[in-house]
Design a binder for these strands. Sequence first.
DNA 1: CTGTTAGCGCTTTCAG
DNA 2: CTGAAAGCGCTAACAG
Lengths: 336, 336
Amino acid sequence: MEATPSRPWTMQQIADAAGVSVTTVSHAISGKRPVSAETASRIRRLIDEFGYAPNSGAVRLQSGRSQVIGLAVPDIAHPYFGRIAKGVEEAADSADYGLIVASTVNADPRREKRYFNMLRTRAIDGLVYTSSRSTSEVDELARQARSGAPLVLADESVPGLALPSVTTTVAEGAREAAEHLRALGHSRVAVVAGYSGLHSTEERAVAFREVLPHALTLYGDYEQESGYRIMSDLLANEVPFTAVFAHNDDMAVGAMRRLREAGLRVPEDVSIVGFDDFDVARIVTPELTTVRKDLVEVGRRAARLLLDRLATGEAGGTEVVPTELVVRGSTGPART
Amino acid sequence: MEATPSRPWTMQQIADAAGVSVTTVSHAISGKRPVSAETASRIRRLIDEFGYAPNSGAVRLQSGRSQVIGLAVPDIAHPYFGRIAKGVEEAADSADYGLIVASTVNADPRREKRYFNMLRTRAIDGLVYTSSRSTSEVDELARQARSGAPLVLADESVPGLALPSVTTTVAEGAREAAEHLRALGHSRVAVVAGYSGLHSTEERAVAFREVLPHALTLYGDYEQESGYRIMSDLLANEVPFTAVFAHNDDMAVGAMRRLREAGLRVPEDVSIVGFDDFDVARIVTPELTTVRKDLVEVGRRAARLLLDRLATGEAGGTEVVPTELVVRGSTGPART
DNA sequence: CTGTTAGCGCTTTCAG
DNA sequence: CTGAAAGCGCTAACAG
């Protein structure tokens, strides 16, 4: 089998075939200068026939732009980041930009620097960053921001970092969840929170307690197992509660599993509210009451913010995507 | 705020600062030619100090290579493709390649052509393709394959297309599932299959019937709802069966939901086997017996196959990743 | 061990 | 409306 595709056509070859100069071919393609109708159509025909496409390296070198943006995520396989990625890809694609995905897993220092390096080599024109908790990252982020690199934060803003960002109304969401529970008569509520270092985790915890001041807050790691474990601890210590608010659906499901194992019924004995509205929320029985977060939209807007900046040169501000409480079967009146 | 990052340093500037020619700087970086130890270290220091990184457009134009590969997936937000993407990214990253993700959703013709176009513009050096069912795609794929484009198929091979690919032992998986059910005494089994057009769907259906020849096969679309719907039809027609084999976990869960609504117990009345071993398999009650597919490994190997080809020029062959039957609570002895 | 020179394929002045 | 020519930043002969 032949190893390498045949050498691609160059603009010069199209020009020769059309009997014009490369300048004319270039302008016929870009439309930045008038070209006689007849010549233009001849060139177009030749381009189609040859299957010519301009060499991206040459375009990039000449223009200084790569028409590619980057997306840094901890784990592309996780549905949470997958959704953000989907939105980013969608917006990038419709602006005719490519999307390079770089994983930030494991805080591997080499990988950590990778996307910033892409920015410096001009492999990408800008970067959508979904925050991790690593402080070395935050330092680098701050440095890049100061140097004016086109950077947008998606989903998670970093306090003290004046970077354009797209977040969601997690505080409102948490407040709504709390009000929903309070309206059902719950007053003793356990909160299964996310990483304690994350800004959005704190926002939720604080907002929730504004409505239910005595909510007992325990921190997990957003994984199902931590919901399970925290619930185990609560049960082992005979902590009295009639409702649980988990910072994501996975932990809610973990908590629910533990409750079921303990012989407690949802929602008769304990009500549960999750966060995110992922697929699991509709798979468990009863279906989960949860706060929906439109992460695809977050990704879409983050990319648009970045693309706008690349187009206009003006760093945009901050956008907020609304959350929405979705009431399903996992919440009911407090047992009295 | 300043709009654009300051113009990056060029190799010439490093050379001037070091008092040498660009050639020497270039070789000091690449190591393709000896450079005096002293000069080399001076250059290295300057590079660090300036934060210099070679312009990727220039490198690309010069070398004809972009150090980026592409991944075409129907939907990056779907955990199925997210896992493949994770493996591909991992392998690409460790070979110092970037990864451009292109979505192929909705069979939008413009998007469909996009990654092939990237190949032609040399924006990517090769492509990992996860098959869709669109025949226009298959034609284009065949054309590209013939022209020797560096292409690797991941997860799904296309019969009649001699392209390097990485698949899984779905037939063995289906056979194992069938044997497991037969050993439990099941003989009337309903199969909730995937898209009828997909090669891997047929493979599973055929292999399953080799063991359980009378299995009634009904085609769905891999979505949970289709499992639900197919189960409804089966029930409405009073088709007798004691077990269900679904081609993925989502459809298994849909079928399970419908069974529960009909008052049937799993596994006492009906046993269920899924496929993939996704998170849902462990969330439902009882936990799902399923055939595990290591999609991250599929992605990893597909990328490696592609990268090897780019490095050596030799198109690799076909690799197969093993599946594994995972027995959990959703299967039990046939009701007699 | 180092420098000079010629491009890679394209866009964009500057001149018709 | 069209061309010639000068680079964009880098690598790789070729020549010391």
